[in-house]
C-alpha cells in the first residue's frame, strides 16, 4: 500500500491538489459558507483524476504487480490522505476559533455556519460523499469523470445548504454553538461525521473494487 500511495503522490497527482489543501484555512473566514472548504478540496482531487486519466494512469497501475482491484485501493488511499490532511488543517483552524478567537466580534456576528465540531462533522460527511459518489463512479465506469462529479457537486451543495440552514431552525440552533458550548451535541455530530466518512469510504472502496474488476481497459 505504501508503494501505491507513493505512486499516486508522485505520478498521478497534480500539484494543484496539494495547493488546494490551503482551502482548509477557509475555516478562519468570517461571513463565508465555510463548508465549501470540502468542495474545493474535492475539486482539487478531481483535477488529479483528470490528469491521471490523460496520463493513462489506470492502465499503468493495472499492469503493476498488484491485483487489478488494488488500483482502486491506491486511489482511495490517496483521496483519504488528501481529505484527512485538509481536515486536519480545518480542525486546527476550528480549534483556534473555538478557543483563542471564541469571543471575536467578527465571528460572533457571523450569520452563517460557525466553525465548531458540528462543522467538522459536516466536512467529513462531504468527503465521504465524494468517495462514495465520485470515486466509486469513476472506477465503475473505468474513468468516467463528468457524471460522477456533477452528481457529487449537487449532493455537496445540498449538504452545504442543509448545514448552513440547520441553525436557523429554533430547535437546532445549538448546532451553531460557540467554543465548547453544548459539548454533547458537538461531539455527537463530529462522531457521526467520522462514522459516516469511514462507512462511506469503506463501502465505496469495496463496491468500486468489484465494479472495476469487470471493467475492460
Amino acid at each position: 500500500m505504501k508503494n501505491l500511495l507513493k505512486k499516486e503522490c508522485r505520478l498521478a497527482a497534480l500539484p494543484l491538489t496539494y495547493f488546494f489543501l490551503a482551502f482548509g484555512f477557509m475555516a478562519l473566514l468570517p461571513g463565508y459558507p465555510i463548508l465549501l472548504t470540502a468542495f474545493f478540496v474535492c475539486l482539487g482531487l478531481f483535477q488529479s483524476f483528470q490528469t491521471a486519466r490523460e496520463a493513462n494512469d489506470l492502465l499503468y497501475t493495472a499492469l503493476l504487480p498488484i491485483r487489478k482491484a488494488d488500483a482502486v485501493k491506491g486511489r482511495m488511499l490517496f483521496c483519504a490522505f488528501i481529505e484527512l490532511t485538509a481536515f486536519a488543517v480545518s480542525a486546527a483552524c476550528t480549534l483556534v476559533r473555538m478557543t483563542a478567537l471564541k469571543d471575536a466580534a467578527v465571528y460572533r456576528q457571523n450569520a452563517l455556519m460557525n466553525a465548531n465540531f458540528v462543522y467538522l462533522g459536516f466536512l467529513l460527511l462531504i468527503y465521504g460523499c465524494f468517495n462514495a459518489v465520485f470515486v466509486r463512479g469513476f472506477f465503475k465506469t473505468g474513468g468516467g469523470l463528468m457524471k460522477p462529479f456533477l452528481t457529487f457537486g449537487v449532493l455537496a451543495f445540498l449538504i452545504v445548504a442543509v448545514g448552513e440552514a440547520l441553525h436557523f431552525i429554533p430547535a437546532l440552533s445549538a448546532a451553531n454553538a460557540f467554543g465548547f458550548d453544548r459539548p454533547g451535541l458537538q461531539v455527537a455530530c463530529l462522531a457521526a461525521g467520522a462514522g459516516l466518512f469511514a462507512l462511506l469510504t469503506f463501502a465505496a472502496e469495496r463496491s468500486a473494487e468489484k465494479a472495476f474488476e469487470k471493467v475492460d481497459l
Binding site: N3, R10, L11, A55, N56, D57, L59, L64, I66
Partner: peptide, 17 residues
C-alpha cells in the same frame, strides 16, 4: 504513460513494486 514525468521519476516509483 505519464507524458510529463521524467523517465527517472517513473522508474523510481515502478522499481519499488
Amino acid at each position: 504513460y505519464y507524458p510529463k514525468k521524467t523517465i527517472r521519476e517513473i522508474v523510481d516509483v515502478t522499481k519499488a513494486f
